[in-house]
């Protein structure tokens, strides 16, 4: 699943060099800000056919927590 999410990140953020890990934080990726965060959420929701709640979206601290949330859906 990490590689699928990584592909989404590369596509949305238009950066082929992005390498994600469970411990990756938004500060680690220049293009990942409050604007692109929602674009990422929309792309992930579409890809996995899921819907996150507002609380989930605002509470993720890093990629690992995002992946846990996808797994729980």
């Amino acid at each position: 699943m990490l590689s699928e999410v990584q592909d989404i990140f590369r596509d949305v953020l238009d950066n082929e060099d992005i390498i994600l890990a469970y411990e990756t934080y938004s500060d680690d990726i220049d293009e990942w800000d409050s604007l692109t965060h929602i674009q990422l959420v929309v792309a992930i929701e579409k890809h996995f056919h899921i819907k996150f709640t507002s609380k989930e979206i605002t509470s993720w601290a890093n990629v690992g927590e995002m992946l846990d949330c996808i797994l729980n859906k």
Binding site: S34, L35, H37, I38
Partner: peptide, 15 residues
């Protein structure tokens, strides 16, 4: 404002 106004609005309007 980004955390408590923009983010909730952006999430609500994301579709």
């Amino acid at each position: 404002v980004t955390q408590y106004v923009f983010m909730p609005l952006n999430i609500a309007f994301r579709d």
